[in-house]
Design a protein around this nucleic acid. Sequence first.
DNA 1: TATAATTATGCAACAATGTTGCAATAAATA
DNA 2: TATTTATTGCAACATTGTTGCATAATTATA
Lengths: 135, 135
Amino acid sequence: MENLLKNKNIRVTPFRIDVLRVFNSFENAMSLSQIEEKLGSFDRITLYRTLKSFQENGLIHEIVMPGDIKKYAMCEEKCGHKEHDHQHEHIHFHCKKCSEVYCLDVPTLPDFHFTNYTIENLEIQVKGICEKCQE
Amino acid sequence: MENLLKNKNIRVTPFRIDVLRVFNSFENAMSLSQIEEKLGSFDRITLYRTLKSFQENGLIHEIVMPGDIKKYAMCEEKCGHKEHDHQHEHIHFHCKKCSEVYCLDVPTLPDFHFTNYTIENLEIQVKGICEKCQE
DNA sequence: TATAATTATGCAACAATGTTGCAATAAATA
DNA sequence: TATTTATTGCAACATTGTTGCATAATTATA
């Protein structure tokens, strides 16, 4: 747990370990309020700053979707990183029924080309019905 | 201008025409503050509600990107619609230099399949350097 | 075209979300 | 263990979005 932080050059503090534990305790992406619920007691501002530094150091990434949906998920080894210039080999699946956001791996990402535009990274979001919500 | 509203079953009012004019005056997606600047005088709440109803009626769509970027762009004929269940044949390109968001048409969208997941729509966002910002 | 039904507007008040500065404290470095 | 450096917790503030309600405007109807 501590090593996850150290490897990313993030100072180890008790609170950061708590937050990391929360991420490890749930497999899908979590909203701020989900994280807060799991934390119990915490300082709101410290949590913001913790999430920010986790993002800046490539430990977690932010997932946003139309409709004011914002979630956070742990990064994988393979993730590129550094703030918002983050490249995944996965897409984000948002289930309309249960509202869970899953990071799903894909073998290859599509390769777009636009004349005179330089592409640096891709973000793909899919909406539909997840595994668990199929009747 | 009025017909654009009528066709989408949106009541025609002077303010809504003003907002539509703003959308027509700029080809790329616009943030709330860009829209506000172009409007001059306006009521903040009415603007929120106007954008909401434009979205609900498939006249504009919302584009969100990691890093608290939220923009609005006009829908094309071909767009699916209805709130956040909106399907484009285009992707959203965000330029890191000038921060413009372009809606770029693509011939075909990638076709993902995940066993036991039903896909209803796709949202693809690309970051890089736009045409105008290439040196 | 006047009237009724319906929806939009503008304002106040509020709620949620995110930011900044700063003193005290804790972690890493030498 | 002393020093440097970063984090924490608090207050205050800024931004963004929402709700209720009376008034006004738009659309439908007779």
